[in-house]
Design a protein around this nucleic acid. Sequence first.
DNA 1: GCCGCAACCGGACTTTACCCCGCTTCCCCG
DNA 2: CGGGGAAGCGGGGTAAAGTCCGGTTGCGGC
Lengths: 203, 203
Amino acid sequence: MDRPIVFDSAPTERADAARNRLHLLATARQIIREQGPDRLTMDGLAERAGLGKGTVFRRFRTRAGIFEALLDDDERDFQQQVLAGAPPLGPGAPPLERLIAYGRARTTFLVEHLEIARAALDGSKPVPIGHRAPSSQIHIRMLLAQLRPSCVDLDMLSLQLAAALDGPILLYLSSDELTNSVDERGTRIGQAWQDLVERACRP
Amino acid sequence: MDRPIVFDSAPTERADAARNRLHLLATARQIIREQGPDRLTMDGLAERAGLGKGTVFRRFRTRAGIFEALLDDDERDFQQQVLAGAPPLGPGAPPLERLIAYGRARTTFLVEHLEIARAALDGSKPVPIGHRAPSSQIHIRMLLAQLRPSCVDLDMLSLQLAAALDGPILLYLSSDELTNSVDERGTRIGQAWQDLVERACRP
DNA sequence: GCCGCAACCGGACTTTACCCCGCTTCCCCG
DNA sequence: CGGGGAAGCGGGGTAAAGTCCGGTTGCGGC
């Protein structure tokens, strides 16, 4: 009756399941903080959380799924900033500026979460990657549509730009390389993003 | 004395080792052809090749290493075309045309070898990816240097373009999606590449 | 030809992601 | 409030990646 109608992507998650999910995520973060991401094992996580192995697998499907969930969690804040924060990242600024700001912000975010983001990549078992279109591409596509309404293949262009943004960080940057001068690298990538976008968006 | 001084990346590979390497690669291709890439296991490969497991691991380090070696092997032809083939892919054509032709050719190559290329990606154990700078980026960088000698950060731009080229195919294209109309998809990606490059390379 | 050494080979061993299936717990509806 | 059914839970089981080390084999010098 007084139960509000609401979009449940997983319709009605059971109370104990939700509690366990939170607990598992917290425990995972703790292990990662203490021992680094590659020391996180499914058995270890289950044991330390005081739960069974089956539970962990039911919740996250695969090992990469854990990191994916952690990243989703961290990304929520970031998304909020993009969708409803202050300009130029949030709405209100002209699209080109938003696009540039978005690239810079996402670069920062990815660099700060690099280990988890890389671990969330897996590219083998369940479905490669595109199980849901990456939010990055969606947002870029939206801004591009305002910038270049005459573009014939917005989907491909946004895909390319999303790859040009994430790819260098995720694929070609090893974690060691950024212990020294995270800032310098970040600004360099950000500058390059700005250059690329400005070129790609002129008529 | 009469031993010529030569660059051996692995100095003097023993005869039996070389023979085994070839045999292992051939056996791997056979298994992949018959049962698909995910059915290729280290044990299975060793047994079918009539060798010990230790041998397989010594040669390829990891499972992904096998696919990497297979891809290297396939890529040799492609590289040859790029370095010494007919224009516009090979030398002789103006740089912009070569760049466009390169993207189209690499798209075709990657789509044809998609399963192996994806399996060669791993992103966990030994070193992430960039253990050797990908040949794609090197070539793009070389052509860019002719096209835009005034560009401040050629390294980043070539990195971005390489990611924009490989990323959509490797990361965002699941193998199922291309059973229907490989050609159409290929031309679409090729066209998008041309658009992007032409925009990115204007002064 | 022979010797020492380094590289190679083999296969047993360990670790870990992932599966399975019987039991328990929670939710819904009457 | 109580019963039925589905979802969640537990932990033992399997397969496959990657490690180790003792035995073997090819290679360069004498």
